[in-house]
Amino acid sequence: MAACLAGDAAAWRRLLSRYETVIWLIPKRFGLCEEDAAEVFQAVCLALFRGLPRLKQAAGLTRWVLTTTHRQSRDLARKRRREAPLPEEPDLSTIPDQSPSVADLHEEAVTRVAIRAAIDRLAPRCAELLRLLYLEADPLSYREVAKRFDIPEGTVGPTRARCLSRLREILEKELRGSTK
């Protein structure tokens, strides 16, 4: 946070990488289309950047991102519902509100942020290996990873097991910290 406030572009990118999935995920949970989700994403990212001087404390940041994204998504989803043509003689009392609450999303958001933070704390080689195996839209095979890292294919599985084990340890600490 302090580095972001000091104008460090790399710190902003790191901060953003922790929250971008949550900021994208929540409008999708509201059933918003890609275009609307992009609108929410942009609004929240800008609000986050502009709000940094007021936020200052990293501790409350996940909560702030969650509630801000939730509010933006909820408002846009309501607007879209108002704009949608209604069926004939609707009985609105029978239509349940399917919007997720902040409480519904809280655990998932905390986990997502903690995973990103934990990956940041891994050794760079471990982080890269896990990224290639799990985080890519089109994950690489063991053979491709072995080629990329210039290691025998048979060592990829045990290495990724060690990296995941380390990730679990860090993640548990992150999650314990976020519930304090």
Binding site: E20, L25, L130, E136
Partner: peptide, 12 residues
């Protein structure tokens, strides 16, 4: 593992 895979699925 599912949480990690979800990260790629739900990325902007």
């Amino acid at each position: 593992v599912e949480d990690l895979r979800a990260e790629s699925r739900d990325s902007p």
